[in-house]
């Protein structure tokens, strides 16, 4: 049931892509936060979370994403999301996340814009 998986799809380019699958709850959020911290500490300051395979996120998972956001803002980096379901997009909109992150409809658009520094 909504098994969580995280894969770092690209560690070489300017943008580190984290492919997230499954339920982002406390456990999933911790996994994302830990991996994000590792990447940021390794100098990767542009992170893209591809949520195409995530259907449900809860507020505990969201609070852990906020820790990632706080950390990335401290290094003047960029946290971006792509492939959000409409319900997760609405959740992010309710929280006002678009003000501090970048949200893209698909991964190709995200990578093109983030890589070019737009």
């Amino acid at each position: 049931m909504e098994t969580f998986e995280l894969k770092v799809a690209d560690q070489d380019g300017k943008v580190a892509v984290l492919e997230v699958a499954g339920y982002i709850n406390n456990e999933g959020g911790e996994v994302i936060a830990k991996e994000a911290r590792r990447l940021i500490d390794a100098g990767r300051h542009t992170l893209l979370l591809d949520l195409r395979a995530t259907r449900i996120i809860n507020s505990i998972g969201i609070s852990l994403l906020l820790e990632v956001l706080e950390h990335i803002l401290e290094v003047k980096g960029t946290l971006a999301f792509c492939c959000l379901t409409p319900s997760i997009a609405k959740t992010f909109q309710i929280m006002g996340l678009a003000q501090y992150t970048r949200i893209f409809p698909d991964r190709a658009t995200a990578l093109a814009e983030l890589s070019s520094g737009q």
Binding site: I60, L66, L97
Partner: peptide, 24 residues
């Protein structure tokens, strides 16, 4: 009611649940 700007500065980043229920 949670405010993102405040949450980013705070150690406590939780507290979104009821707001999401009300808005969804």
């Amino acid at each position: 009611r949670p405010v993102l700007e405040d949450k980013l500065r705070s150690r406590r980043k939780r507290g979104w649940g009821l707001e999401l229920v009300r808005r969804l």
